[in-house]
């Protein structure tokens, strides 16, 4: 694992003092980089848990002087946060079920089956994944308007699925690729059809991949903002990603409630993305990097 150019202690010529010095430099650099990266998130936590009488003061204290929890109950009492979260959950759930089902089919044809259009199919998915959402939004808005599908949670989850599907297929394809060919061959010897190989052998061996796909499809719909803000117009269907931005717009929300709302919204996606990061990254690079 010792790699890079200036790795400390690699050259025997270096003196003990020089070694200690470069170790100190290393630790200082790592600390500075880590602090700079994490500070905005730290500040979100501080602003959530510290009463605003301290935060709304210049200069604000860098270390919280007091910690409270009342802002969470006040947030839910003053704003329809529960409704927003419910809407987000419904959209994400529908997108997850649909996307995971379609992904299994797509990943299997891309990984384990040999057919003529396979490369083209893979490229088609790649290009779909790369198009900016805005290009689809305007014509799709018009189409949805004609079909009377605006302001509907299931209709929105259809769009979210379309954009999560390519990366999900690439993720699961990468996992399916790791199932040894011998296992598949042995199953065919035992008289399995392709579909039962998928169902009885490939899928049970790919549980982490399936979880990753579920996570990505769920949370990409949960986090999605652009389609939601345009396609859902009535307050009763507003998901959390859009609802949070109305908190900002009103300006009357106390800072600790505003930040608490952001924290509640983020906690699950952050947790699951970190756990599943290896798979997500391999999917984002279309299998070019295993992560």
């Amino acid at each position: 694992m010792t790699n890079m150019a200036v790795s400390p202690g690699a050259t025997p010529k270096k003196s003990k003092v020089g070694q200690t010095l470069s170790t100190i430099v290393l630790y200082v650099t790592v600390s500075v980089v880590s602090v700079m990266t994490v500070f905005p998130i730290y500040w979100m936590l501080v602003s959530t848990f510290q009463p605003s009488k301290y935060t709304l003061h210049y200069p604000p204290p860098l270390i919280p002087k007091e910690i409270t929890f009342y802002q969470f109950s006040e947030l839910f009492a003053n704003h329809p946060v529960a409704l927003w979260l419910r809407n987000s959950f419904l959209i994400a759930m529908m997108a997850m079920l649909l996307c995971t089902a379609l992904t299994v089919l797509g990943a299997y044809t891309l990984s384990s089956l040999r057919w003529k259009g396979r490369t083209t199919f893979g490229l088609f998915l790649l290009v779909t994944q790369m198009l900016p959402e805005i290009l689809i939004l305007i014509p799709l808005y018009k189409i949805y308007q004609q079909l009377n599908m605006l302001d509907s949670l299931p209709a929105l989850s259809l769009v979210d699925t379309a954009f999560a599907l390519p990366i999900c297929i690439w993720i699961l394809k990468g996992v399916f690729d790791t199932v040894p060919t011998e296992v598949l061959d042995a199953a065919v010897v035992d008289g399995c059809t392709e579909l039962s190989v998928l169902w009885h052998i490939v899928l049970p061996l790919s549980t982490p991949g399936l979880v990753a796909v579920a996570v990505v499809s769920f949370f990409s719909a949960w986090n999605e903002f652009l389609f939601a803000v345009i396609m859902l117009t009535s307050a009763e269907f507003q998901p959390a990603s859009v609802g949070l931005t109305t908190l900002k717009a009103t300006g009357f929300t106390p800072v600790e409630q505003y930040m608490a709302a952001g924290l509640i919204f983020s906690i699950l996606p952050v947790l699951f993305y970190l756990i599943m990061q290896r798979y997500i990254i391999s999917g984002l690079t279309a299998g070019a990097v295993k992560g």
Binding site: P40, Y58, L62, F225, M259, F265, L274
Partner: peptide, 29 residues
């Protein structure tokens, strides 16, 4: 810890930075 920003959804990221950059109370000042 380094992966945290990547895992955060975009909307709360904006909320954090709007707050950090507030001309009145922003910590970046």
């Amino acid at each position: 810890m380094l992966m945290l920003p990547w895992a955060f959804p975009e909307v709360p990221v904006v909320m954090i930075f709007v707050w950090i950059l507030s001309p009145q109370f922003g910590v970046v000042n």
